[in-house]
Amino acid sequence: MSDQIADARADGRQTLTEAEGKRLLADAGVAVPSFEECASADAAVEAAEAIGFPVVVKVSSPAVTHKSEWADGAGVAVGLDSPAAVADAATRIFEAAAERGVDAEVLVEQAKDVDAGTEVIVGGLRDPSFGPVVLTGLGGVFTEVFEDTSHRLAPVDRREARAAIEELQTARLLEGYRGSDPVDVDALAAVVEAVGDLVTEHSIAELDVNPVLATADGAVALDALVVLEDGA
């Protein structure tokens, strides 16, 4: 069992924090932005300076799953490019947490320019009939409205993961569209492969990496939601 999953189990939690989820992915070889969990606004500023501006500041607590909807939007602050902005955002989170009686830290994370790449969803889950499964699709409207997703039983090797991506109707958008650079499909396939392995090897009910930012240089997991199986 991974440390992150063991910690969550020890706490009686079924959901990993984003930081735990990202460490789990990073341990499996998936690129994630630099981040640090901080217990105070001062620590958050220090972390931001170490990571380099701009940064994103998010609430980090097992009690908060939907960060962007939490506390009227206080849970996620993006594009913070100064120590003062980081201190403000972190303070808002600590205050909102205190008001709600939630034990929270803040996650300070290197900001990624999402316009510089394509947002892709990679998910894994344990199906009652098929066991571990991975799926992928382009982010936002392509998956939610057009349901253009591609599935595989896990585990998958790199070739199968690549085939899953390439059979998407929207795969052409990854090949470079209206002058954009083609994305590194092999790096993306590596994420699909890693997510498949994680769901296969651990007692994970569901693993959502939404989004993965795919660029010409690689694929970075910008968020991670990990839900563990009951009991186990």
């Binding site: 889950l125 009652p128 009939s129 349901e147 591609s150 569901e206 959502d208 939601l225």
Partner: peptide, 18 residues
């Protein structure tokens, strides 16, 4: 399958076909 969060993106059928 469709009941779970990611699963809402798909149906059982897609898994069989894939």
């Amino acid at each position: 399958f469709a009941a779970s969060h990611t699963g809402a993106l798909t149906g059982d059928h897609a898994l069989y076909e894939a």
